Simulated assay, not measured.
Amino acid sequence: MNAPDSGTPQPSLFATSDLRTTAESDPESSGAARLSPATADIPRNQHSSADATEGTLSENAALSQLLLEIARLLEEQHAGEFRVRAYRNAAATLQELRTPVREIEAAGGTPALEALPTIGRSIATLIEQYLRTGHLPLLDRLRGEENAERLFAMIPTLGPELSHRIYDALHLETLPELYAAARDGRLNSVPGIGRKRVLAIRDYLAGKIRSEVRPPAASHRNPPQSEQNRQIPVTELLSVDEEYRRRAAEGRLPKIAPRRFNPAAAAWLPILHTERDGRHYTAMFSNTARAHELNTTHDWVVIYRDDHQSDGRWTVITSQFGPLKGCRIVRGREDDCLHHYRRENR
């Protein structure tokens, strides 16, 4: 293919701006090479024309505003300055972008999004979530709006009604828990969930798990997210839990007003943003129906990880039985917790 005439101006993906494009300027950067506004490697036939209408780019603008809201909430909730700046920079990039971000994602997936100035891996993943579902789980969480029913309703073949039935019957909170219920038969007991739908849900969730697994050649450097999170010692998660409960008890944390189970719209739920060796964690008391039913809203602590390396979710509770009775444990990692406390008591 002949190179374009050097005298012919090439359309730029971005409006002129002073955004820095080096990895050093982006605390969310995954280390991948950045594309400069003049050299973004998107096929020319997918570029927006210079006179692209405002309507064509409205999704960019809407997503930019949502990222700005994330930045504002993180700042209000005392998150790290670098993290706040990362979302503001990403919002500016989307606002100035002359190509619909949906086209860029369709052409090259996550790598194409990460190649944009100031867009790191975690924000690229967030953008993909929005393009796929119309929701930003992180924003829901920061607003105090996150709930399992909304999460489940994003799965094909499930809607709000069936998601509510699943949650009401089985008290599931996460996609891994839903996958386990689909595999062990519990999901079959939910009214309206037939065998074919259970199989479809199981296949869909299995596909999501497989999609996170990288080729073996790269796995020694970047293990799958589930493996990365499994490698995080329970000591680290328990330290986040301890910091959260201590600072909440001291009244030193900002509070948000969750939408669910809060008819008075009171700002009662403390929220913590903290870091461990570059890993971002958010912690808050559980505001689920199950926690309210068992009166554990000030015992169960949900910890989220969302940074450029991985994401994850854990629940820390006070064990009510067995050798760990009275101890704080990470649900699902009881054996690791037992080893942790045995080492502590040596």
Rank of each mutant, 00 (worst) to 15 (best):
193 I>F: 02
189 S>P: 00
56 T>E: 15
20 R>M: 08
94 L>S: 11
124 A>P: 05
342 R>V: 06
102 R>I: 05
251 G>P: 07
172 L>E: 01
43 P>L: 09
313 R>I: 13
179 Y>E: 11
330 V>K: 00
326 G>D: 05
323 P>I: 05
301 V>L: 05
87 Y>I: 00
267 A>K: 14
64 S>M: 02
264 A>W: 09
36 S>L: 14
317 I>T: 14
267 A>Q: 11
75 E>T: 12
75 E>A: 13
260 R>L: 13
316 V>T: 08
284 M>T: 10
146 E>P: 01
264 A>P: 02
200 A>M: 05
341 Y>F: 12
125 T>M: 10
114 E>M: 08
168 D>C: 03
160 P>I: 06
71 A>W: 00
72 R>V: 01
190 V>P: 01
100 P>C: 06
61 A>S: 11
58 S>E: 12
95 Q>Y: 05
83 R>A: 01
189 S>H: 11
250 E>M: 13
16 T>L: 13
72 R>W: 02
265 A>P: 01
47 H>A: 13
334 E>T: 15
121 R>E: 11
170 L>G: 04
242 E>K: 12
16 T>F: 14
274 T>V: 12
11 P>L: 07
273 H>Q: 03
273 H>L: 02
171 H>Y: 11
55 G>R: 11
134 G>D: 04
340 H>K: 00
97 L>H: 02
346 R>S: 13
58 S>F: 07
268 W>C: 01
104 I>H: 06
